[in-house]
Design a protein around this nucleic acid. Structure first.
Lengths: 240, 240
DNA sequence: ATATTTGACCTTACGGTGTAAAGTATTTTC
DNA sequence: GAAAATACTTTACACCGTAAGGTCAAATAT
């Protein structure tokens, strides 16, 4: 992973020396995070991987914070919302949520950025906009869109994080693991449930939760679009 | 916040010199995190607050990781599961989830510990055990308990994190805020929904999500306990 | 009462971190 | 060809967690 690209190659046929660019830096940063964890990414380490001194990076990013923002954007690119005409809006949203979780699976060390840090760049706002557009397409007015947007967002973010914790080996974790308590007499309920929380089941569990949430959305959307058109029964939760 | 307690008071009537203890250290650590953020907590900083050199702390904790584990336990103490005979199991769980989120409100800087780090100590396993006991009381078999445990856990963890991000001023955040886009023509959906995501609404939004999840749990539990007993619904506290 | 052990804390040091400030060399522009 | 801009380096500072070993008062043993 430490490629040490031959950008400079001291004596040999100096080739116009292509300079670094933000994209290459972000790629390298994500590669390091994937390989060595978030705390494995330091400016010096990143510089070395790119064949450059740490301070050179400050020519392309004002600081590590902005670099991490760029890594977030890069991650978000992997979460795709299917095009508007491809399928019904709720299905589009479901696809997005599933691919969002995939980010946690593919980049377990980096995913926390999406949970911990604010979405503060233009690109991330474009994502918000498209998601909320789909909510609107599904027939949710802004107050209800806000509620379900949060519900599903909380869930997906939390699921990604918990997935990671399950797979986890963060820097200074205690060696104790869930599995060690599986046969414990002192924690019988934990022992009974733990077998169903294994890695192999996480996909199904995640899908189950999405089922519950999207089922609720489907009902509300149906009620709404009904009322919107003429006036049906509708779930009366709304308020204020 | 930097109390610099007079534990040593050089010349004056040296008073048996009460030594530090883990509890006092954890209290001080949490106080620092609350006041200055998670990255504001360093061993040196903590030592200073306690009137002691940093290395003295290593007499009470093997390292910063174990100290953070202790802070997690301290935080978890604030999430209370009402006693078994106080109310029906699903209501007990709901109370727990609400108080769990309160941790995020009271300790926004520390809450991420509960999401990011594994639960690895005895005390945290006791919490798991009691929660799963309540699931059992509610009539869920282990596979279904696992699913709903995750669903509600993902949600509550994600909600806490997102709440924090909303209130956030993490170390190197971009100055851009959601509100700056409220009137934007470029993000009309965001502009429409943002007013409903303000701090004042977060409690209601969180409650709405819990409503959806617990409604689904109620239905499933009813189906289960009905099948389990004979035909009645029965809240039925049962078992050991 | 004295000697010994122990517990609690301190000092020093090492290799890391992000980044401010200033220097250097190469490329581009006029 | 001179001037300006760009890309990168050097050096330095104030932090970080913690390993290793030292110090000194209180507790215990003799």
């Amino acid at each position: 992973m430490a490629d040490q690209t031959e950008r400079s190659c001291p004596g040999r046929r100096r080739k116009a020396r292509v300079p670094l660019n933000r994209e290459a830096i972000v790629d390298a940063a994500l590669a390091i995070i994937d390989a060595e964890g978030l705390e494995g990414l330091s400016m010096r380490r990143l510089g070395t991987a790119l064949g450059v001194e740490a301070m050179a990076l400050y020519h392309h990013f004002p600081g590590k914070g902005r670099l991490l923002d760029a890594v977030m954007e890069r991650l978000l690119d992997e979460a795709v919302l299917p095009p508007r005409n491809a399928m019904p809006p709720l299905e589009r949203l479901r696809h997005f949520m599933e691919s969002y979780r995939q980010i946690a699976v593919w980049h377990p060390n980096a995913f926390i950025l999406l949970v911990y840090r604010r979405f503060n760049t233009e690109r991330t706002f474009q994502v918000y906009e498209k998601i909320l557009e789909a909510f609107d397409d599904a027939g949710f007015d802004p107050p209800l869109a806000a509620r379900f947007f949060r519900l599903v967002g909380y869930y997906v973010g939390g699921a990604g994080m918990a997935d990671i914790a399950s797979r986890a080996r963060e820097p200074d974790a205690t060696p104790v693991k869930l599995e060690q308590f599986a046969g414990s007499k002192r924690y019988p309920r934990v022992a009974a449930v733990v077998p169903h929380l294994r890695l192999a089941n996480l996909d199904a569990i995640f899908g189950f939760g999405l089922d519950v949430i999207f089922e609720a959305m489907r009902k509300q959307a149906a009620g709404r679009s009904g009322r919107r058109a003429e006036g049906a029964r509708a779930q009366k939760r709304q308020k204020r």
